[in-house]
């Protein structure tokens, strides 16, 4: 088993990092170790949207670009450090749409250069994505334009799960986007609420929801590792804490103060 700081050291400057949506197991436990590690110029890929963790990494100055379908703190409103960075032009934003992010990961999973997808034509989302191409469907007699989404191949995926075993298998249940992230990424770092001795693959019922160690680089235990986000089947989100962050992180100074005090409390 690894630990948070050892895992954070695997993240290097300029890496492309895949992070999950707020309800699907965000490894908030890794956020502070990543900030302490200080590897910058990160290109974040939100699968398919981003929130608190992405906002904190932006606030800490570690982010070069964000590819996402949306950024918010959910009920707590807009993501303050992200919104400021957009206004100041200090990060590059690659606006996407949820199924395009899934399509890019799927292409990588299959070892294909791209996946075609419907929709998008006539949107400013497409217009601002020079890396997406429109071709004419070669299987149709008549003109049928369709968008190609290139493979998204992150250097590292980072997420949190309820359960892992000593062999490095991790239980993701029905949160299949976590598997998609791992299949597409060169490295996968996982934090887990609990680590059990017996292999999750020996019981057919847990095996079906298990991402095998084949795709998992390192696992570390982290109790309440998604907080203040919730974790399915374990604990709900702490909306008050999200609201507190949303309030305090409106300014760069407020953000620093928040990170300081929550570090002391931890």
């Amino acid at each position: 088993m690894s630990d948070l700081r050892t895992m954070a050291r695997l993240v290097e400057s300029g890496m492309r990092v895949a992070l999950p949506v707020d309800y699907a197991g965000v490894s908030m436990a890794m956020t502070r170790p990543l900030i302490e590690r200080g590897a910058g110029n990160l290109d974040l890929v939100c699968v398919p949207t981003g929130g608190l963790q992405v906002d904190m990494l932006i606030g800490a100055g570690l982010v070069r670009s964000v590819e996402t379908s949306a950024m918010s703190l959910g009920e707590a409103g807009g993501a303050p450090r992200f919104n400021q960075a957009i206004k100041d032009g200090t990060i590059l934003i690659r606006d996407a749409t949820c199924p395009a992010i899934h399509a890019g990961l799927l292409a990588a999973q299959k070892g294909s250069p791209f996946v075609p997808m419907r929709g998008l034509i006539g949107t400013d989302v497409l217009k601002n994505r020079a890396d997406w191409k429109v071709i004419d469907n070669p299987f149709e007699e008549t003109a049928d334009p369709i968008v190609l989404i290139p493979a998204i191949k992150p250097d590292v995926a980072i997420f949190h799960v309820p359960l892992a075993d000593r062999h490095g298998n991790v239980w993701i249940g029905r949160r299949r986007e976590l598997a998609a992230m791992a299949y597409a990424s060169a490295m996968t770092l996982v934090t887990a609420e609990r680590i059990v001795d017996e292999s999750l693959l020996t019981d057919e019922i847990t095996a079906a929801g298990t991402l095998p160690a084949l795709y998992v680089t390192q696992v570390a235990e982290a109790r309440h590792g998604a907080r203040p986000y919730g974790l399915w089947g374990e604990y709900p989100a702490d909306t008050q804490e999200l609201l507190r962050y949303a309030r305090e992180a409106r300014t760069a100074e407020g953000f620093s103060a928040y990170m300081q005090t929550s570090a002391e409390a931890a």
Partner: peptide, 27 residues
Amino acid sequence: NLVGVGDYPRSSVRWPGSFGAAYLYFV
């Protein structure tokens, strides 16, 4: 428009983003 007000990408008011709309509106 789910993205923001003003000249993209440096929107003066930024909303969360397009989510799945750029696809679902078509299908």
